[in-house]
Design a protein around this nucleic acid. Structure first.
Lengths: 258, 258
DNA sequence: GTGCATTTGTGCGTATGTATA
DNA sequence: ATATACATACGCACAAATGCA
């Protein structure tokens, strides 16, 4: 949610007052309005984060009843182009970051390529016994000691995902310290000579965000997280890392090229 | 939700009455209980769909307070192994279907390979003008006529996803009738000589299910859908179909092999 | 529909052990 | 050694959702 406050709409574009909409054309008024606003959002005349004029003001400018205007806004909200909050107003949504899933999936590279500034902060790390799931993925005996590293990763300061990474403890001495120092799992692994890992398999599910996830990702209640589990391996495709990233679902779009 | 009714727990296994839990061992009681039930679920002694005994009964059998037992159940619910509904009881969850995303992604093949019976029913079809998004994906001018086909697809009778498919209308005469007749988009396309389509790109997002989706997928309120948009092309990688599938998120796990 | 029993969900109060400052 | 905080465990009570007569 970019806080654009007042700076938002200096030149609101949209309809000049009195510039009405075409009646009796067989196209519903709400649809004409929705298409008109959608066009302005898509070609950037209405930038992401901008606050739209109030429903009252818009309905007057388009010369329709507020109900009619709300039908148009509902259409745009359905398409995830705008987002309304009672008491605050209606805002143009940030477009989701396209996040490619491929053999070389690197958070910072992906975010940078989208023109955003990647960052990350360590939220915890510890040694724990491998769960059945993680042991199976890494080809270890269940209960083997694994190092777990948790980080929150952000783009332009807004949290994008919570990442948990599990490594066979024996292979990764002091990885956690390196991650803390560099803020990047990628760089820390490079230092340990494991920089050339590649994505072997990705598993994707989704569910409502729990309380911790809402807090870490600053999500309002009812939002959903994309749970992306990944097995990463070395050059010989031997698994060396299992990771679980929980993305704020409305801030990303996972892309698979085939 | 498989309706297992009474046939469920003939031999409930779990703890025999009086068989208590180890106190004062440094391992929390709830953790011992959770691990014990998890083991029974994982090795199949507690089958998917089975209803667990009530919390009162379980707490008595384990010899702990109901709160303590509930802490154990919460752990298992967090791991998505069980699911509780007020008034109904607590059930062992069906494991999600692994749904591979690849160049040859076919619903019926995938479901059949998971040992389930695939089926589908047409819910609507019509000609409509291409939206900006669909036109861009198919390489058409916006507003070009496209054929839209909507189907609900199920595995063993439980709905898995709602699929909408858009085809350039000119290339697909009477495709809708064929889909209605065969119940399979794949087969209908084969009849038209377009059976060899392949997945070019897949885009994945997630959000709470809306009312229509909850109805079509028989989901309770608050559940989430995985929205999987795909561009499918012919042998020359020319786009011929755009599709949007909305999956019941807790019934599938999308898998990407790299 | 109405009422009732069953079952899960939630809140409050209390006590105890354990780790930390 | 003392104080504080936290997780664990128990007891009682009631709310909310479901299913059934």
């Amino acid at each position: 949610m970019s806080e654009s406050d007042d700076s938002a709409v200096t030149e609101p574009s949209l309809p000049a007052p009195g510039e009405d909409v075409a009646r009796g054309t067989g196209v519903a008024l709400w649809k004409q309005i929705a298409e008109r606003i959608e066009a302005e959002i898509l070609d950037g005349r209405l930038a992401a984060g901008v606050r739209l004029p109030t429903e009252m003001e818009l309905s007057e400018r388009f010369g329709v009843n507020r109900h009619t205007l709300r039908r148009a806004l509902a259409e745009l909200a359905e398409k995830r182009l705008i987002e309304a909050t009672p008491g605050r107003g209606t805002f143009v949504r940030e477009p989701p970051i396209r996040y490619p899933i491929g053999p070389r999936t690197r958070f910072s590279e992906i975010v940078a390529r989208e023109g955003r500034a990647p960052s990350g902060r360590l939220t915890g790390s510890r040694i724990e016994p491998a769960s059945a799931e993680i042991a199976a993925a890494l080809g270890l005996a269940p209960g083997t000691e694994v190092l777990r590293v948790d980080i929150v990763r952000e783009a332009d300061g807004v949290p994008l995902n919570i990442g948990s990474h599990w490594y066979e403890a024996a292979r990764c001495r002091d990885l956690d310290l390196l991650v803390a120092a560099t803020g990047s799992v990628t760089r820390a692994l490079e230092t340990l000579g494991l920089g050339d890992y590649r994505r072997l398999e990705t598993r994707i599910t989704a569910r409502p965000a729990d309380e911790e996830e809402r807090r870490e990702l600053s999500l309002p209640a009812g939002r959903t997280v994309l749970v992306v589990d990944a097995i990463n391996g070395d050059a010989q495709r031997r698994p060396i890392q299992y990771s679980r990233a929980r993305f704020a679902a409305d801030r990303v779009q996972l892309v698979v090229k085939n």
